[in-house]
């Protein structure tokens, strides 16, 4: 039974801000280990969708299941569910008053009741993996944008999540720093973690995504493998969109 269940199951997800409807009924299944890339014109609701998944935005209607647990139910302890589903933000949102190492260890220590020593050992391994070990005792303000985003990914990894949500992780970076972040993400994708990624990096989408969805007007307008979506788009709006981004 476990195997048949998708990692994330979304049905009829709606979100409106006042009178503006941003999501108009999104249905989607995301399998374990899948790397799902979400593309679409700005204002189409892709970031809102991502933020609804961990209820940083409260959905107006619809249901979201994470690993079989309905996280939209009021009975669910959302704080516990969020620990399985980390988020990486466009603007990093590292904690500026804590060192890099503390950024990685505070979650495991306070929420998973890990000992300080154990959390630090684990954090150092992660920092080595993302190539940031020598900055362990630096503060976020001393890092470049690309380094900050790698640390943000590391902070997510430190919580041992099932899923990582990426909200335009490279959009706030200088062009020369995009590559280092994408490298880390590619390595993650290979490790088998479930990733949902809103991005404008078409190269990354083509290379790494298992599936791509195209959002338009708050619904999933097209879904398929990178091959299908990028090379043979059926939706007219998608064709227009791709014509603009794939120059």
């Amino acid at each position: 039974m476990e195997n048949n269940k998708p990692m994330i199951h979304v049905e009829g997800l709606c979100k409106s801000f006042g009178k503006i409807d941003v999501l108009n009924g999104v249905d989607i299944d995301i399998e374990k280990g899948e790397v799902l890339v979400i593309i679409g014109p700005s204002g189409c609701g892709k970031s809102t969708f991502l933020r609804c998944l961990n209820r940083l935005e409260e959905p107006t209607a619809g249901k979201i299941f994470l690993d079989g647990t309905e996280i939209t139910s009021p009975k669910t302890n959302i704080n516990q569910q969020r620990q399985k589903m980390m988020m990486v933000f466009q603007h990093f949102n590292l904690f500026p008053h804590k060192t890099i190492l503390q950024n990685l260890t505070i979650g495991p220590i306070k929420l998973k009741k890990m000992s300080k020593a154990e959390a630090e050992e684990k954090a150092m391994k992660i920092l080595e993996r993302i190539g940031m070990a020598e900055k362990a005792y630096a503060y976020p303000s001393q890092l470049s944008g690309g380094q900050k985003q790698r640390v943000a990914i590391g902070r997510a990894l430190a919580m041992d999540p099932e899923v990582i949500l990426f909200d335009e992780p490279t959009s706030a970076l200088d062009p020369e720093m995009v590559g280092e972040v994408l490298e880390v993400m590619k390595e993650l994708a290979k490790s088998g973690i479930t990733m949902i990624c809103v991005t404008h990096e078409m190269g990354f989408a083509r290379e790494v995504a298992s599936n791509i969805v195209f959002f338009d007007n708050g619904v999933v307008a097209e879904k398929g493998t990178p091959q299908e979506v990028l090379n043979n788009p059926k939706n007219e709006r998608l064709q227009n969109f791709l014509a603009k981004v794939l120059v």
Partner: peptide
């Protein structure tokens, strides 16, 4: 304080009070 800090704390799984206190 940048609202992103609050979101970062909550998205890690901290409660409202925990986010306030730690971040």
């Amino acid at each position: 304080v940048d609202p992103g800090q609050f979101e970062a704390g909550r998205s890690l799984g901290f409660s409202h009070a925990g986010t306030m206190w730690h971040f």
